[in-house]
Nucleic acid binder design. Structure first.
Lengths: 245, 245
DNA sequence: GCAAAAGTGTTGGAAATACACCCATGT
DNA sequence: ACATGGGTGTATTTCCAACACTTTTGC
């Protein structure tokens, strides 16, 4: 959360509110969104430049205090809507951060949410302001404990995309298998065998052939697929015995 | 969190505080501990009978408001110490719950922690009061949204013990392989092959032979092992490719 | 016709599973 | 001596990993 950042449904004097809360022995509660995107074969995250004094040159996550009348998920959705204009994004709570000195403006516990958006679709709607995409792997410094939060969410994503079909949220509705593989390779930072990758995903029976092909590629065009949510029926959670420490 | 339960470091009028906070548009923050134990070959959870009016017959998790000067983990440890007298327990944050109407005393966001304790070791220290162990699988009703929290933590545990060596925290320092297997069978609700189970754990090279044997068993006594934390050096996080939806 | 990536099967090894008999102890 | 669970090895199957050539398009 970057406290001096004005948001659409702006609450003035957040910093002041927090100081007041703190002097009363009360803890503020916020939501911070780690908004992931995929572009140029790299994993990106949406950050804002901090306006808070002492943090002028640092980047921070998009966040806000939780309103009294909204639950945590709603707060996260609100932030996403306000900042990206999108409201059909993948969103999931990751964990909470409550270190005592984590925020300079006062005692705030924050709930981190990871969000996956399609950058292409999103580009048009982004409000022309100080919000920009950054490569996840090359971010050096961030405000407050936001680097920690980002890294926890990044590791969460690495595990998560191997166990649940959510990587599709980072891609356009139609995508080639190569794009899907690039996504996995970038996020997991590995090189994968094309044939085995293909075999794996086809055997899971989640991809639907759109009948269309790539265009404007200087080589044989690949088929375009879409993710078929309906087919994802958790076909029996098999292996009880994933014991593997 | 059960608000009228007096705790060792008692803060009077929690309910009143919350009502005040709510009227001020402020959100309270608490920690709830799901304390798991293993006894009689069953997974148990430590619950307290709710004193809050309207919830007299319901059980609730052990929780408390987070103090202004302590971080979330510290708050969870404090609750554990106060309620069980133990301070070397396994403790891990699971997730937050912030539904608007989740607590009748006001708006409170709670952070759920899962904790694993050894019931035997714990028995002696438990304060003689209204706190008791309950079978996880047969709990019917609970106060507030605590049944949901418990179930989320139970599912978390089922996944977690397959990926990390934390089941040992539920057992005595020395245990037989049969006890370990019973633990897994109870938590995962499956029947396992004894030979394969044994093979698996020995191949992971985490168990240390104590040289001692079971006593007072009406059959051939099994060897006793202890969990060797040192040997658990995350021997390379192998499979990048756990893709399996 | 050449460059560049798409598309496609097979094989060998490792790990998971299924399965049955002898052993040590208490009664 | 017998009842009870401890302790052990092997054969089968399943899954993962490695690997090379042909096809289609743009230039």
């Amino acid at each position: 959360m970057d406290l001096k950042t004005p948001s659409a449904s702006s609450h003035k004097n957040v910093s002041t509110i927090l100081k007041q809360l703190e002097s009363d022995g009360i803890i503020g509660i916020s939501v911070d969104c780690v908004i992931f995107g995929f572009d140029d074969n790299e994993l990106k995250v949406l950050l804002i430049k901090s306006d808070l004094e002492g943090f002028e040159d640092k980047f921070s996550l998009l966040g806000d205090l939780v309103h009294n009348h909204e639950d945590l998920d709603q707060a996260a959705y609100r932030i996403l809507r306000e900042r990206t204009g999108m409201d059909d994004v993948y969103l999931e709570q990751v964990r909470s951060f409550g270190q005592i000195g984590r925020h300079p403006a006062g005692r705030v516990v924050t709930i981190a949410y990871a969000s996956l958006v399609n950058i292409e679709h999103h580009k048009l709607k982004i409000l022309a302001n100080e919000v920009h995409w950054h490569r996840v792997t090359t971010i050096s410094e961030m405000a407050f404990d936001h680097k920690t939060i980002l890294m926890v969410c990044y590791e969460w994503l690495q595990r998560r995309i191997q166990e649940h079909p959510l990587g599709f949220s980072l891609l356009p509705k139609q995508f080639s298998l190569r794009e899907l593989q690039n996504l996995y390779e970038a996020i997991l930072d590995v090189k994968l065998d094309r044939r085995n990758f293909r075999k794996k995903f086809f055997s899971m029976d989640l991809l639907e052939d759109t009948g269309e092909l790539e265009t404007d590629v200087p080589h044989r065009p690949g088929k375009l697929y879409r993710f078929n949510y309906d087919k994802y029926k958790k076909k029996e959670r098999k292996k009880w015995f994933g014991i593997d420490f």
